[in-house]
Amino acid sequence: MAEVAQKVAADIPDASYVNLGIGIPEMVAGFVPEGRELIYHTENGLLGMGPTPVPGHEDPELINAGKKCVTAIPGASFFHHADSFMMIRGGHIDYCVLGAFQVSQEGDLANWSTGETNAIPAVGGAMDLVAGVKNIFVITQHTTKTGEPKIVQQCTYPLTGKQVVTRIYTNYAIIDIRDKKLYIRELAPGIEMEFLQQVTGAPLHQD
């Protein structure tokens, strides 16, 4: 998914403040396009998150939302959780990149619970992010490990937010969500339209 993470970074305008979620989104921090300054925010209290430290320079008290060691770029700042979520909920963050269990064609996101009786639900900051950040990008494998579509007409898992996702980046395509419809923005090399529709649980449109 590294190439996909690089695509996400490439689409974020210069001088944006960008929150990165747990999992695949963490990879985006490794790609700041040439000539651009992107300021990465991590909800646990760092603005100006840099890439993974070189081995031997890890600090267990300098971590990202996924609790992995990171670095702080020159110009970074640390702050407490209430301030961090003030940035998020208060609309100060420009872009957010999150993972997903499911995304619906209307932009509904499900990424915190499978709803199963024995599952341990874990919401973290996802609900605050989708409530407070205007541009919500999802980066995910196009299908589940068993090949089921993750992009669906209606989410069957409990929602994180309703009509919040604006774009989906997968290993097969980049898809925009507008007017409650899915629009193909870009196909990955070697992916045909017909195949993409087969592995997508909702109708795809082209401009």
């Binding site: 909800e43 407490h80 959780h81 209430a82 979520f85 024995n118 341990i120 639900p121 900051g125 605050d128």
Partner: peptide, 20 residues
């Protein structure tokens, strides 16, 4: 939790921070 032996109140992280 799976055995039903501890209670959980799940709170979104920003809501948790703001409640405190």
């Amino acid at each position: 939790y799976t055995r039903g032996e501890i209670e959980l109140e799940l709170v979104p992280q920003g809501t948790l921070a703001e409640r405190i």
